[in-house]
Design a protein around this nucleic acid. Structure first.
Lengths: 203, 203
DNA sequence: TGAGTTCTTGACCGTACGGTCAAGAAACGG
DNA sequence: CCGTTTCTTGACCGTACGGTCAAGAACTCA
């Protein structure tokens, strides 16, 4: 579906994307019908199929945009910083902020995991994210700043820990992104063990 | 739906639960119809509604059983161990093993997160799991074995990190549960920082 | 102004869904 | 053996879904 869109057309497309995102996040993907989406915008059903091939393609489009937007945010946050550990920290902080402001996208991503047909679109974005983190981790290992173990386990661990803290503390308990980021970073850098070095954690 | 079931009845109910679990995990909850489930067992549709009120109730029942089964496994794994850090480690190891053997349940849980109406049943189980971990964490803090920070962040962090490693390394990359558990425990206990103490990590 | 394009309408289509129910088979209990 | 309960059948119901399409409105641009 690659149409030439006028300004009006782009506007309409954006409306559809945003309204659908909201409904998908609130009610779930399957329970939200195309009829519901066009009714919510007060337009005919044909409008939907003028801009998108199918409900499925619309959803994939939403995922793609979300991944793009998050990545752009992270890149901006870490640019100009050289220390790999500081880069990881900045990445986590910006992710927490972004997640707090885009709970809808977060929910949609969680759902997408559960259906085979959405996994391909997801994996692409996940792989990019993991590669970003792994690059900093490997860099940290090379400079002797990070324990020399499997960079992929570390990268996935960082992602998983951050994701869970976002869900529980930001989206459910409504703590501030800053507080959550502090805790995430402390855990990631030094784990839970007590020890003389742990007092020196702050970068 | 509290019927008095004969042996045959219990058997039928179990068949329905197991077959539905498989299909839900393979194709997703919504794409799997009740008709498909009863056809798969070669029985009439009425059979389904003799044992369950609705498709939704069946799904909730599956979730409940999975949570119960995992918890029982964890409890068995840690009984008799006194050291809180060793208890956490044993809990993680048994969870990894269980997850490797019950990928279906894992997938269903991931889906359940994405629909409002399943959240209540989920939260109950999650809260129990978190409380279990938090008790050990608090115990560890009291004995000076664990850094004295918010036990809830630590507990959620452990859960999130473990969950992600299970998904990626056990279910997608098919690594052994033991290897994954080793990495998870190393990260949780000591974080990613280098440092003299990190060599003493193994319990 | 008028031809061409973009955009919108909403009735309509076939299908598949979750769920019901009257009827009867099978098993149980005395 | 018979009455009762448990279990099974499968046609049927109303509904809602994703998607189509002929027709026309709105806009663009020469």
């Amino acid at each position: 579906m690659n149409r030439r869109l006028t300004t009006r057309g782009k506007e309409r497309r954006r409306q559809l994307l945003e309204f659908a995102t909201q409904r998908f996040a609130d009610n779930g993907y399957h329970p939200t019908s195309v009829a519901e989406i066009v009714q919510g915008l007060g337009v005919g059903k044909g409008v939907f199929y003028w801009y998108f091939d199918s409900k499925e393609q619309l959803f994939i489009e939403i995922l793609r945009e979300a991944q793009q937007d998050l990545r752009r945010t992270q890149q901006q946050a870490i640019e100009g910083e050289d220390d790999p550990i500081a880069r990881i920290e900045l990445g986590i902080r910006s992710t927490m902020l972004w997640s707090a402001e885009h709970e809808n996208y977060y929910k949609l991503t969680q759902f997408a995991i559960t259906e085979e047909r959405f996994l391909p679109s997801l994996r692409k974005g996940q792989e990019v994210a993991i590669k970003d983190v792994m690059r900093h981790v490997q860099d940290g290992i090379d400079r002797g700043l990070i324990r020399d173990t499997s960079a992929d386990y570390i990268a996935q661990g960082i992602l998983g820990l951050s994701t869970q803290l976002v869900r529980v503390f930001i989206h459910e308990k409504h703590r501030s992104p800053d507080e959550v980021a502090d805790e995430a970073i402390a855990l990631i850098l030094d784990g839970i063990h007590t020890g003389d070095r742990s007092a020196a954690a702050p970068i």
